[in-house]
Simulated scan of single mutants.
Amino acid sequence: MAQVIRMCAGCRQRAAREELVRLVWSDGAVVVDERCRLPGRGVYLHPGCVAAVLRNRGVGRGLRREVDARQLRDLLDRLAG
Score class of each variant (00 low, 15 high):
1 M>C: 13
1 M>V: 12
1 M>F: 13
2 A>D: 12
3 Q>W: 07
3 Q>H: 11
4 V>M: 03
4 V>H: 07
5 I>T: 12
6 R>I: 06
6 R>S: 03
7 M>Y: 07
9 A>Q: 12
10 G>N: 04
10 G>W: 03
10 G>L: 09
12 R>A: 12
13 Q>C: 09
13 Q>W: 00
14 R>H: 12
14 R>G: 14
14 R>Y: 09
14 R>T: 12
14 R>A: 15
15 A>S: 12
16 A>H: 11
17 R>Y: 08
17 R>A: 15
18 E>G: 09
19 E>L: 11
19 E>W: 00
20 L>D: 00
20 L>E: 00
20 L>S: 03
20 L>F: 01
21 V>K: 01
21 V>D: 00
21 V>C: 01
25 W>P: 06
25 W>K: 11
27 D>L: 07
28 G>Q: 04
29 A>K: 15
29 A>Q: 15
29 A>F: 05
29 A>D: 12
29 A>E: 11
31 V>P: 03
31 V>E: 01
32 V>Y: 00
32 V>P: 05
33 D>L: 05
33 D>S: 02
35 R>I: 00
36 C>I: 09
36 C>K: 13
36 C>R: 14
37 R>F: 03
37 R>G: 14
38 L>S: 02
39 P>F: 04
40 G>C: 09
41 R>P: 14
41 R>A: 11
41 R>C: 08
41 R>F: 04
42 G>R: 11
42 G>N: 09
44 Y>E: 03
44 Y>W: 08
45 L>H: 11
45 L>Q: 05
45 L>S: 08
47 P>Y: 00
48 G>W: 07
48 G>M: 10
49 C>Q: 00
51 A>T: 13
54 L>D: 03
54 L>I: 06
55 R>C: 08
55 R>A: 14
56 N>L: 07
57 R>M: 10
58 G>W: 05
60 G>K: 13
60 G>P: 09
61 R>S: 13
61 R>Q: 13
62 G>P: 08
63 L>N: 03
65 R>T: 12
65 R>A: 08
65 R>S: 10
66 E>A: 12
67 V>E: 01
68 D>N: 15
69 A>K: 15
69 A>F: 07
69 A>Y: 11
69 A>D: 13
70 R>I: 15
71 Q>H: 10
72 L>Y: 05
72 L>A: 07
72 L>C: 10
73 R>V: 10
74 D>N: 14
75 L>Y: 05
75 L>F: 04
77 D>I: 10
77 D>K: 14
78 R>S: 09
80 A>N: 05
80 A>T: 08
81 G>K: 02
